[in-house]
Computed example of a mutant assay.
Amino acid sequence: MLVNRFVSQRSLYTVPEFVAKNLPKVYKTQEQYDLVAKEQHGKLVEDLNQKVAQTIFEPLSPIELMERLRNDKTKVHIFNNCSHLINNHLFIENILPPVKPVSIDNKIVKALFDIYKSESLEDLCRKLKTEMNQKLIGQGFFYIIEEGNGKISTLFSNNQGTPLISTAGLKFQDLDLNGGILRPNDYKNYNDRLRSVKVALNEKAKVKASSKKNIEEGQIPGSDLKILAIINLWDYAFIKDYGIGNVARETYFENCLAELNWDVVLKRLEI
């Protein structure tokens, strides 16, 4: 379970205790870490409790809620809450210091070197920072994922986007037209992405129309993508320690990549 529960008069989601002997190296202060792992995470948990209290959704776990509500436009606020909660949980787990040092010389890093044509972690970080600035305007997350065919790849998603649900990429939320002043090339990228979304929606409609059997609620097949690592790129995840602006976010992002707990990441690969 990603979110623990206890039972009183009704089931409540509770904030997990993220146990670490030392402060994650990516953070400079306990205050910043507590903001991410306790205050903000606690708010996400409290918000979810309020949204599902005394409803038919109350007994469901966050991932079950996402599966149930993925196509319900009236419940987007619950879906996004669950997505953000799960993303932040996985992020905290993979930046907690490992019990013992783990080598970065592993199949995931080697796959990333191959994808980005890099021979060093420094060069990989530089290329990923460039990609982040091109693809992420505003809040979001960075993922290292494993596809259904075993291929390792990366993904940036805006806001509370997630690769867990939609194989068509419709839940990545990588279209954010509320993010500041856009450069000319940004509008072209958005236009290309909108075209891709329209194609995916049309294909989805064709599949649904040709289906002889309606899929029962809650049994909609999930994505074949597996999250291996997440970096939280929302402002609250770094603003107290690093400040604001692209340079601050780049420094924080680079530190997160350098301090990923590969023990946790590699165990997710085995699941």
Rank of each mutant, 00 (worst) to 15 (best):
R183N: 12
N246Q: 13
Y236G: 06
G161T: 07
I181Q: 11
T55M: 12
F253T: 05
C125F: 04
A209M: 15
L269R: 06
Q50E: 01
R10C: 11
K135L: 02
G245P: 00
P97Q: 00
K73C: 14
V265M: 10
I56M: 12
V199G: 09
V15R: 15
S103M: 10
V109Y: 03
E147F: 03
L128M: 05
H41G: 06
Y143N: 02
D114Q: 14
T167I: 07
L128C: 03
T14I: 13
V265C: 15
S153K: 05
E146Y: 10
A237W: 05
L48Q: 05
G245W: 07
E146M: 09
S83E: 05
L65H: 04
T167N: 13
N106Y: 00
V265P: 04
D192L: 09
Y27H: 03
R268I: 15
Y236P: 04
S157R: 02
K129F: 02
G245I: 05
V26H: 10
L170V: 00
L69N: 09
A200F: 12
A200M: 13
E203Y: 08
K127M: 01
E250L: 04
D34G: 07
L228C: 09
I95M: 04
Y236F: 11
F113P: 08
S210F: 15
I181K: 13
G222D: 02
R68T: 13
Y13A: 03
P101H: 13
L2F: 14
L257F: 02
S211N: 15
K151Y: 09
V19P: 15
D186A: 08
N158E: 07
M66V: 09
P59G: 07
